[in-house]
Simulated scan of single mutants.
Amino acid sequence: MDTPTIIIDRSKLMNNIKKMADVSSSNKVSLRPHIKTHKIPYIAKEQLKAGAVGITVAKVSEAEVMADYGITDIFIAYPLVTEKKIKKAIELSKRIRLIVATDCLQGANLLSKFASQSKIKLEVRLEVDTGLRRTGVLYNEALELAKKIMVLPNLHLTGIYTFRGPVLNGKTTLQLKEAGIEEGKVMVTLAEQMNREGIDIRDVSVGSTPTSEFAAEVAGVTEIRPGTYIFYDAMQEKYGSCAEEECAATVHVTVVSRPSHDLAIIDGGSKTFATDVQPNQPPLLLKGFGKIVGHPNVTLERVTEEHGMLHIEGDANIRVGDVLQIIPNHICSTVNLHNEVSIIDQYGDCERYAVLARGKLQ
């Protein structure tokens, strides 16, 4: 195959699917993986076959793609606040089980308004900020907001959810167990408060790839939503979520130039590798924009659109024409740059899959 291209090891892929399915089943919580990492209906169906109850997406357009390929239980874990998106979600909810999200009264009122006009009832979850400082109602304001949402017509508030990642006491951490348990406990405590106030919260949905296995241990957590675990990446390895051998997806690139002893150029730059996870940032302090397999002394130090500059410390048997495998820092954003991936089994047989939900911005 020509390069640059993403190659997925089928055996590692299936092992990763089973690993997280075992985490959910052993803790008796539901698994609703986020498809932001792979964006491929075939892989989502493999996750469902292994025991996932449904999937999570970020965009209505992603949900539409997955529904078109037969997936019938989808959570859009992103606040919908515009008429066009809400109406598209309502149409989708007429053919599948669709859960939508809100984190403010303004958004909830819009969901209620358009659901009432369409004479349907929308299943809604309230997003809560538990420390990431992204979307989500502030934790200490969540109870009062839930009371107001509960009485809105044509909405059924069934759960609360959060995304926090490896954060502990408000800061990014490598203490994954402590972070996961804290995440689970604060959400369960909130759900218990809501239930005492007469709000029937049946779903407490938490967990990222680094924290899910620990958050799932907390009594009262009902669902985990990891995404990156399907492939893993250099960032997850550095967190300690996986070993290098578990990373199922690598970007294959070709060395196109070797101008000097300490420099080699590959045919993958910022249009091939995600650059959203920058090197040398705490707490991970990643080296470069990806991990070059088998070459610990080589760093993908710089990227322009079509060029990747490898810095070589000491000697490296790297020549023009060589194909290298690189585990990107962030596989989710990297996959979104590619039209297709190739899945290869232990016998070398290859199947190509279009990344059908890539580039879905709405």
Score class of each variant (00 low, 15 high):
D267R: 13
V341N: 01
N109M: 14
V128R: 04
L190Q: 02
Y42P: 03
C242G: 03
T102W: 03
V29W: 07
A63F: 11
L310W: 06
P283R: 14
I7R: 11
F273G: 03
L80C: 05
V277E: 02
P296W: 14
G51V: 00
L143Q: 12
D22F: 06
P279R: 05
L152E: 04
L176S: 01
N154M: 02
N336R: 12
E244R: 15
K87A: 03
A243G: 14
L92S: 09
Q278M: 13
E197N: 12
T135S: 04
E245G: 09
V186R: 02
R32S: 01
L361F: 09
V57Y: 03
V57A: 04
I292E: 00
K85H: 14
E301R: 09
H295P: 10
T334A: 04
E351F: 07
G107F: 13
S208P: 10
V128I: 13
I199K: 11
Y353W: 10
V323H: 06
R352F: 01
L138Q: 11
Q193W: 10
L110K: 15
T173Q: 02
D9P: 12
V65R: 00
I181C: 09
S24E: 11
L126Q: 06
I265E: 01
D267G: 11
M235R: 10
H156W: 05
M309C: 06
K119R: 13
E305C: 06
